[in-house]
C-alpha cells in the first residue's frame, strides 16, 4: 500500500527459535519488515504465529536467533525491553482492557505514567484517538459497558496513545460477534492507509487481500510461504498453502 519505503527494515528476525519446555514452537523463523509495511500472518491454530509476534515485543522470550527492532536488539537488558515496548503497540484477541478504569483512563494511563505526559495533554490526545476510532462519546464509560467491537477499538486507541512506530495485532477480530468485525477492520484499514507498520495475525482473508503488502503463512512453527496477496491467492506454490487456502476460502 505504501509507495515510498526507506531501505532499512524496522524489524529484523534472523533464525529465531523458541521452545515451550521440550516443544519446539518456532523453528528458524526469519522475517524482515520494512517501515510502513503491512504484513499479515496466517496459518492454522498452534502453528506459532501468535507466539512469533509476541516475541517481537518480548512478551515471550526467544532462545536462539536475533530479533532487532528499530535498531535495538532484544536481549535480557531491561532497558532495551522497556525502550522497545514503548515503540510497539499491541492489540490482543481478548482486548485486555483494564476493567476498573474508564475508557479515558485506560488510554491515558501509559502516556501519563510511562511517558510522563501531563494529564491534560494525555486526555486531549486520548479524545483525538477516540474520535479516530469512531467512539468519542464513550470516553467516560467503563469497558464493561461497551460492546466487543467498541472495546477492541478502545484497545487500538490505547495502543496508539503511546505513539508507537509498529502495531502488532494478535487475532483482533476472533473474539467478536460477526456484526462487529467490520467496525474493527475499518479502523485497522484506516490505520494501514495512514502508513503505520503493522503485523497482523488474522483469519480475515478479505482484510489480508485488501490491505496486506505481504502475506506470511505459518505452519508447525516455520514460515511456509510468503508473498504479495496476488501471488498468495492466485498462484500459491507450496502444497501446504494450497491445502490451507482450500479449507479457508
Amino acid at each position: 500500500m505504501s509507495e515510498t519505503k526507506s531501505p532499512e527494515p524496522i524489524i529484523i528476525c534472523r533464525n529465531v527459535n523458541k521452545w515451550f519446555g521440550n516443544f519446539h514452537v518456532l523453528k528458524d523463523v526469519s522475517l524482515e519488515v520494512m517501515p510502513q509495511e503491512v504484513v499479515v500472518i496466517i496459518g492454522p491454530s498452534g502453528s506459532g504465529k501468535s507466539t512469533f509476534i509476541r516475541c517481537i515485543n518480548r512478551l515471550e522470550e526467544h532462545q536462539e536467533g536475533q530479533i532487532i527492532v528499530d535498531g535495538i536488539e532484544l536481549s535480557h537488558d531491561v532497558r532495551n525491553i522497556a525502550a522497545i515496548r514503548s515503540e510497539i503497540g499491541m492489540v490482543f484477541q481478548q482486548f485486555n482492557l483494564f476493567p476498573h478504569l474508564t475508557v479515558l483512563d485506560n488510554i491515558t494511563l501509559a502516556p501519563r505514567y510511562v511517558r510522563r505526559q501531563p494529564r491534560r495533554v494525555a486526555e486531549e490526545l486520548a479524545l483525538q484517538l477516540l474520535e479516530r476510532v469512531g467512539i468519542p462519546e464513550q470516553a467516560r464509560k467503563y469497558p464493561g459497558q461497551l460492546s466487543g467491537g467498541q472495546q477492541q477499538r478502545v484497545a487500538i486507541a490505547r495502543a496508539l496513545a503511546m505513539q508507537p512506530k509498529i502495531m502488532l495485532f494478535d487475532e483482533p477480530t476472533s473474539a467478536l460477534d460477526p456484526e462487529m468485525i467490520k467496525e474493527v477492520l475499518d479502523v485497522m484499514k484506516e490505520l494501514a492507509r495512514s502508513g503505520m507498520t503493522m503485523l497482523v495475525v488474522t483469519h480475515e482473508m478479505g482484510f489480508a487481500r485488501e490491505v496486506a503488502d505481504r502475506i506470511v503463512l505459518f505452519d508447525e512453527g516455520r514460515i511456509v510461504e510468503m508473498g504479495t496477496p496476488e501471488h498468495f491467492f492466485t498462484n500459491p506454490q507450496h502444497e501446504r498453502t494450497k491445502l490451507f487456502l482450500s479449507q479457508i476460502l
Binding site: L59, A82, R85, S86, M90, N96, F98, A110, V114
Partner: peptide
C-alpha cells in the same frame, strides 16, 4: 487474568 499483566507490559508499564 494474565492478559491484564501482558497488556500493561505491552504498554511499557
Amino acid at each position: 487474568p494474565h492478559g491484564q499483566i501482558e497488556a500493561a507490559r505491552a504498554l511499557g508499564l
